[in-house]
């Protein structure tokens, strides 16, 4: 299906996309995980992850992207991200209040530090990335089916 010349763009675009789409996804995950050390965070990294899937869809046509992440999987993952963020917030009640940072802080400038902040970044990254990809998927599919 990937090498079908009928769907998607030309061969040059497909080859370049095959080389770069993994790097874009990896860069998004890096931005999410290092949100408490460097500029970035859940919002920017999530949008970059969504852009990698949009890149795949624009180059190869919509079938390849749907075989990676279908619409039901996207909406389920978005709900899981939202529930994960809310449950992290509710875990603070173990220490006494909403959104309390109950995990150990660690030493600053380390990757595993800052308590719940990396977990919150991962939850927001899943939620924003998959949510924006679901929006784009819905816009494309409905226009094609009419």
């Amino acid at each position: 299906m990937i090498d079908n010349p009928k769907t998607g763009m030309t061969l040059i675009v497909k080859t370049i996309t095959r080389l770069t789409v993994g790097l874009i996804l990896l860069f998004g995950i890096y931005i999410i995980l290092h949100g408490h050390l460097s500029p970035g965070g859940g919002f920017a990294g999530g949008v970059i992850v969504a852009l990698s899937f949009v890149h795949l869809m624009l180059a190869f046509g919509k079938d390849v992207a749907i075989s990676k992440v279908s619409k039901n999987l996207a909406s389920n993952l978005e709900s899981i991200g939202a529930l994960m963020f809310l449950s992290i917030a509710l875990l603070g009640f173990l220490g006494g209040s909403f959104f309390l940072n109950i995990l150990p802080k660690g030493t600053p400038f380390n990757l595993f530090s800052a308590g719940i902040i990396p977990l919150c970044n991962i939850a927001i990254g899943i939620k924003v990335g998959v949510g924006l990809f679901a929006i784009f998927l819905t816009l494309v599919i409905v226009e094609k089916s009419k």
Binding site: P39, G41, E78, A89, G115, I117
Partner: peptide, 27 residues
């Protein structure tokens, strides 16, 4: 908070209610 990036510390620890509202709006 242990976070070096002060903006991340503000949006995810000091003012996390704002981020929760943003998640609701996006959903």
């Amino acid at each position: 908070t242990g976070s070096v990036n002060i903006v991340t510390a503000v949006i995810l620890d000091f003012r996390a209610y704002d981020t929760l509202g943003e998640a609701t709006v996006l959903f």
